[in-house]
């Protein structure tokens, strides 16, 4: 692990982050286009959640985590407060692992 590697990763990541906001400053996007971009972002975020709930560095993360996140999801759907969702998800996962 070297400073060069860190700087290259940082530069690439920042370029990908800034590209969108800088482009959007120049482009006119239609109402429908904006809606579609927002659907794409929600989809991407949800997929990120699904993948990080199910996998740990490329292999199945185990049922405790999956069940913990699912229980959290049900609570969130029933409009439980954010803090409660996070604590219950962690608690369920830790509890299942302790069994």
């Amino acid at each position: 692990m070297t400073l060069g590697l860190v700087l290259a990763l940082a530069a690439g990541t920042y370029a990908m982050r800034a590209a969108g906001p800088l482009l959007r400053g120049r482009l006119r996007v239609s109402e429908r286009g904006r809606w579609l971009l927002s659907v794409a972002a929600v989809t991407l975020l949800a997929a990120f959640v699904a993948v990080s709930a199910c996998y740990e560095s490329g292999s199945f993360a185990g049922w405790p985590r999956v069940i913990g996140v699912l229980v959290g999801g049900v609570l969130a759907w029933r409009r439980a407060p954010f803090v409660v969702v996070v604590l219950v998800a962690a608690g369920v996962t830790a509890g299942l692992r302790a069994l």
Binding site: V42, L45, A46, F48, V49, S52, A53, E56, A61, P64, R65, G68, V69, G72, G73, A76, W77, F82, V85, V86, L87, V88, A89, A90, G91, V92, T93, A94, G95, R97
Partner: peptide
């Protein structure tokens, strides 16, 4: 169980 806390937190915001 912290590895479940972050995805669950994000899920709360995605819904």
């Amino acid at each position: 169980g912290l590895d479940a806390a972050l995805p669950a937190g994000l899920l709360t915001l995605v819904l």
